[in-house]
Computed example of a mutant assay.
Amino acid sequence: MPHPRKRFSQALRRWLQVFASPVREEDDGGKAGIAIHTYRGYGSHSEIYLMGRVFRQSRVGRSMKQSFWRDILDVLRRITRRGMPGVNVAVRFGDSHTVVDTDADGYFRAHMMINEPLPPNKVWHKAELKVLFRNETVKARAAIYIPPLETDYVVVSDIDDTVMYTGVANKAKMMIRLFFEKADRRAVFPGVAAFYQALFDGGEDRKRPLLYVSRAPWTIYEMLVEFFRMHRIPEGPVLFLREWGLSWKSPLPRRAVHHKQMVIRQMMQLYKEQSFILIGDSGQKDPEVYTQMVREFPSRIKTIYIRSIDENPERDKSISELAREVHETGSTLVLAEDTVSMARHALSQGYISKEGFAAVQEEARKDEAIRG
């Protein structure tokens, strides 16, 4: 086993590289240091959504060779770069195109109708983006996820205390768990990776949309993507994060008013032909939020899985009352102690295969053994 000092050094270098990666990827921008940072887009065979941000970033040190000091410099460049408001962003997807403006923080959102048929089973596509600034053209590309036509379910999942243990909205905890903890101190709940993979496959390689919602800020997007990759959790097309709008004048994050409800409603409108599976935890308001969605879409939401993360009898009682209400609509709310319990119910409903369930059991057993 490497010496603790060496292990820490390796972890630090890895964190620096992940955190600085967007800056390096966007160094092909114009002379003024303008860069377009894109997040994974998503859509259907009739329309797509795309989000990103336009920055001005320093070009100091961009010609340096990769090294520890280059990583440090790139992190500083990322911290000091600023979003550019009121910039026109041209977006093209096949024969479809549109122009959108960036907001006060430099973010932009594009919603486009698709004008041409897409390959029925191709799930990842590319959009081309372009910004014209002071007679300079800056270009970028964005990945767009579009599920196959035969997809039956859409899975929407919370992250914090549902996929991973508490800390996703805390940058310090995220960095420690992602890069600095020992390998045997896993940050995800036992069996999660296999369960989400089984839901994604559906037993027939359906490639169901997996949409993750979090109250965390967009600034840790790359760390979350890396976290999912390291723990072999299907990344899904999108991470729906929040714009915290932090600044020296406003050091506190904006309130997340109905963030999760808005995301689910938007997905309901986008994937009109699909039913939904919602996954959350008992710690905050997921049971109440998801029950409200059942009230609004009683025939569309088939099952709600709630991970029980505390031993509060009153909380369990209130969730049981919500479960009865959900049941009366023809849907189901399952309050589960662990991932295997969720997977067992999913198997009974045909959401996952027998092989998928066996994989969840095996992974959960190994994870529990590692934790001791």
Results as ranks from 00 to 15, higher is better:
residue 85 P to A: 08
residue 112 M to L: 15
residue 234 P to I: 13
residue 300 R to I: 05
residue 83 G to Y: 00
residue 108 F to L: 04
residue 28 D to S: 01
residue 256 A to I: 00
residue 295 R to P: 03
residue 255 R to V: 15
residue 287 P to I: 02
residue 277 I to V: 13
residue 199 L to K: 06
residue 132 L to H: 07
residue 98 T to H: 03
residue 320 S to W: 07
residue 194 A to E: 12
residue 47 E to T: 12
residue 237 P to W: 11
residue 260 K to L: 00
residue 5 R to A: 13
residue 187 A to V: 14
residue 29 G to P: 00
residue 372 G to A: 14
residue 126 K to L: 05
residue 105 D to G: 03
residue 195 F to N: 02
residue 39 Y to P: 10
residue 357 F to N: 05
residue 213 V to S: 01
residue 4 P to S: 05
residue 206 R to S: 15
residue 221 Y to F: 08
residue 11 A to F: 15
residue 366 K to Y: 15
residue 214 S to P: 09
residue 207 K to T: 12
residue 92 R to I: 01
residue 115 N to V: 11
residue 344 R to Q: 14
residue 123 V to N: 03
residue 206 R to N: 11
residue 171 K to E: 11
residue 194 A to Y: 08
residue 10 Q to S: 06
residue 214 S to A: 00
residue 326 V to Q: 08
residue 93 F to A: 06
residue 303 T to C: 01
residue 131 V to K: 02
residue 99 V to P: 08
residue 78 R to M: 06
residue 164 M to C: 13
residue 272 K to V: 07
residue 195 F to E: 04
residue 240 F to G: 10
residue 90 A to Y: 02
residue 109 R to M: 08
residue 72 I to F: 05
residue 249 K to S: 11
residue 144 I to V: 15
residue 302 K to A: 07
residue 143 A to W: 15
residue 209 P to R: 12
residue 331 S to N: 00
residue 206 R to D: 15
residue 94 G to L: 00
residue 27 D to P: 01
residue 182 K to C: 02
residue 257 V to T: 14
residue 200 F to N: 14
residue 317 K to Y: 15
residue 36 I to H: 07
residue 190 P to S: 10
residue 38 T to N: 12
residue 188 V to K: 05
residue 2 P to K: 09
residue 77 R to M: 08
residue 67 S to A: 03
residue 185 R to W: 15
residue 76 L to Y: 00
residue 339 T to Q: 02
residue 71 D to M: 10
residue 367 D to Y: 06
residue 323 A to T: 11
residue 167 G to Y: 13
residue 307 R to G: 12
residue 151 T to N: 12
residue 73 L to H: 13
residue 80 T to A: 09
residue 303 T to E: 10
residue 247 S to C: 09
residue 76 L to N: 03
residue 32 A to I: 01
residue 269 Q to T: 13
residue 136 E to A: 00
residue 113 M to D: 04
residue 129 L to Y: 07
residue 342 M to A: 12
residue 266 Q to E: 11
residue 257 V to P: 04
residue 126 K to Q: 06
residue 246 L to C: 05
residue 295 R to N: 05
residue 301 I to V: 12
residue 91 V to Y: 01
residue 163 V to W: 10
residue 193 A to W: 06
residue 317 K to A: 11
residue 299 S to V: 11
residue 332 T to V: 11
residue 317 K to Q: 15
residue 87 V to Y: 01
residue 164 M to I: 14
residue 214 S to C: 01
residue 273 E to L: 09
residue 96 S to Q: 14
residue 27 D to C: 13
residue 198 A to T: 14
residue 152 D to G: 12
residue 248 W to F: 04
residue 62 R to H: 07
residue 228 F to S: 11
residue 345 H to E: 08
residue 170 N to D: 14
residue 278 L to C: 01
residue 85 P to E: 03
residue 318 S to M: 09
residue 10 Q to T: 11
residue 32 A to S: 13
residue 309 I to N: 07
residue 131 V to H: 04
residue 206 R to P: 01
residue 208 R to I: 00
residue 341 S to H: 05
residue 205 D to G: 12
residue 70 R to T: 13
residue 165 Y to S: 06
residue 7 R to E: 08
residue 325 E to W: 02
